[in-house]
Design a protein around this nucleic acid. Structure first.
Lengths: 213, 213
DNA sequence: CCCTCATTCATACGTTCGTTTGAATCAGAC
DNA sequence: GTCTGATTCAAACGAACGTATGAATGAGGG
């Protein structure tokens, strides 16, 4: 608690409130009040509410992307053809892992991701950057090697399913314990293993045969 | 076009706008304007914006629940132990099927469901009724018979995963073609088959072994 | 001390929101 | 025609919102 940096406290408060109440449901006043800052602080430090959201999302996504990329690096260092289950774990695992700022087993982070992903406003959804695209493409390539014969479109579909299940599950966990500060660790670890099982089987399914049409 | 019933037109307009812009992103003024009604019509016919949402969701969910239940009935009439793939299709299929009011292959409906499901406000999420619970429990029982040895909690996890993947995929389809009025039929049918493949494999995975802890 | 610059502060502006109100309108029964 | 009940209408209310403004504040260098 050395530096009560206003800018950081605004990011912390906004991350928490955006995750809990959504973008539209969070007022700048609520953010500044929680941060112990003045109402005008958001305008001064970030310019606008939308840019504050951008900063929050960027800060949250960066370590996840790094962890996904590092996990894939570790796998590829061992073998050029990792197993599907390992790829799933490397992709989905970071969403379950603990985040620095006392996140509850990644649940709050995922709640934020779902809140943002589910928001229909383009202003809210336009945050994916080149870093995310790079990691995603690397996983796509690895999965394509592990699942020969799977059309690229279906692979796309499946990878999105993996992200969806992971984020949604974690979000629900958070939703049910928004104020409870001790994470349901056992349930969280179980969910992680369930998710890996569920998603590995899903990814490993044989390609769908083309229909009559 | 016989009856320009104001109440129905309000429901239609609200369903469209809630799906497209979310609950908070849709103003009562936008709804009444689209419905060609007066601003006060929502208050008169529904009482409040929240009750309007409730009416919309109830109207959307009812045929889906009925179709899921009927599909399960058809399966159980044939055999007491349907295959997992058939159960998955009966559960997820109705979300892909065409809805009466020119829905685009169920995509708009799913967009609405995701928008509502993803909204952190309890006011928005409190819509599941006894009908939904009944259908869900029936599918849980059928899946439990088809997947012996799977703990109830993990079965719960998996069924939610099925709903999540289905709704989220459909929502994305709608999101990418919100104004385009002709549905991407081929892609939609492909997505339906992909989803069945993906989810059947996921549901059929062997139970996760308990970890050391 | 004084000047400077970054930050914080109280305050206000203009807009949009959900809701309410009371009069106007209309159809059908008598 | 007239009364009645349901519906629609224009208008307004108070609250909450994002943003902008200009003065206060405080630390560091000259």
């Amino acid at each position: 608690m050395a530096a009560p940096d206003t800018r950081t406290q605004l990011l912390d408060a906004a991350e928490h409130l955006f995750a809990e109440r959504g973008y539209r449901g969070t007022s700048i006043r609520a953010v500044t009040e929680r941060a112990g800052a003045n109402l005008a602080a958001v305008g001064y430090h970030f310019g606008s509410k939308a840019e504050l959201l951008g900063a929050v999302v960027r800060r949250v996504l960066e370590p996840i992307n790094a962890a996904q990329s590092a996990g894939l690096d570790r796998l590829l260092a061992r073998t050029p053809d990792p197993a599907v289950s390992d790829l799933v774990e490397a992709f989905a695992g970071p969403l379950f892992d603990e985040m620095p700022a006392g996140d509850e087993g990644g649940a709050r982070t995922s709640r934020l991701i779902v809140t943002i992903l589910g928001d229909p406003a383009e202003e809210v959804r336009a945050w994916t950057g080149p870093a995310e695209a790079t990691v995603r493409d690397r996983f796509l390539a690895a999965f394509a090697r592990a699942l020969p014969g799977l059309p690229p479109e279906e692979l796309w579909f499946r990878l999105r399913g993996v992200l969806t299940v992971t984020a949604m599950d974690r979000a629900d966990v958070y939703q049910q314990h928004p104020t409870d500060c001790q994470p349901p660790a056992a349930a969280g670890n179980a969910a992680r293993r369930w998710a890996i099982t569920f998603l590995t089987a899903a990814m490993s399914a044989p390609p769908t045969r083309a229909a009559s049409e």
